[in-house]
Write a protein that binds this DNA or RNA. Structure first.
Lengths: 146, 146
DNA sequence: TAAAAATTTAAAATAATTTTTATTTGTTGA
DNA sequence: TCAACAAATAAAAATTATTTTAAATTTTTA
């Protein structure tokens, strides 16, 4: 958590921006209270604790956190963006249950090798990848609501 | 193309829906003129040829085409949904260039094996997957505009 | 052909996100 | 210290993609 703050602070400063109380508060909430989250949730969580920041500031700050590599966007098929921690978590992929919305994380070193192999073949310089499997989790198999 | 129409017609009828001229026209444009496309493009293309259908109808029809397995949604990191043909194309994954937006398709049988292995391990019933690599294509490496 | 059902259009509504505008805060230097 | 400049904020308005609504039209069926 403190180290995440260092990374953010450093990024902020390198861009000639300011490490404002709002940015600090958002960073704290992002890294103390959530795994995957959405902007709306974060806002709600902060409001609940009487920490008042505007929605626009959250959107702008989260964008900064993505840019400096602390967060990444994850798209689960809903209309709004989900975010997850990059800092302090090893890279992983997702299983998304269409029944109950549950997210199961998994990782496998073979995926990176794969990526490299494919990129070499296509003369492509990879920056990131996303592997996502959609289907039904154990509990939802059988009573498939969709 | 004709076969795609058969699939659609069959689906439509199996659901007790109607194979209207609008639906037929949209199907034709989807399968004659496009690889990847967006609703807005499709609308534009049809208007250009004086084929008049409302945007709402396109959205509704495209959703039907997804449901019956002729199309699938692909998310490239933009705010609007992209669609691609499933019918007549084998399954593939995407390399998305952040520089110029180019999409390179690739496929590899190992990915399906992988999926199955991971799903068994997690007691998950897969329905679909998506593997996408973001980065820079040959031409864009060097002059990285982002 | 009349009545019911489904579909269409166009406009309004919605949802997520971005932009604008006026205000606030922080900093700088005379 | 205080004007003046830059950056950041809140709140509201704007935007974009998509969905819904309501009214009109088409199709099907009895």
């Amino acid at each position: 958590m403190d180290e995440a703050e260092d990374v953010f602070r450093e990024y902020i400063q390198s861009k000639g921006l300011k490490f404002t109380p709002e940015r600090k508060a958002i960073l704290n909430y992002v890294f103390e209270n959530h795994g995957h989250f959405e902007v709306e949730e974060l806002l709600f969580e902060m409001r609940k604790n009487k920490v008042r920041v505007s929605k626009a500031t959250i959107y702008r700050t989260v964008a900064l956190l993505v840019k400096c590599g602390l967060l990444r966007e994850v798209i689960f098929g809903e209309k709004h963006t989900h975010y997850e921690h990059v800092y302090g978590h090893e890279h992983h992929e997702h299983l998304v249950c269409s029944g109950c919305g549950k997210i199961i994380e998994f990782s496998d070193e073979r995926i990176e090798k794969f990526q490299d192999e494919i990129c070499v073949k296509n003369m492509f310089k990879p920056e990131s990848h996303r592997f996502q499997i959609t289907g039904y989790c154990e509990e939802c198999v059988g009573g498939k609501s969709k």
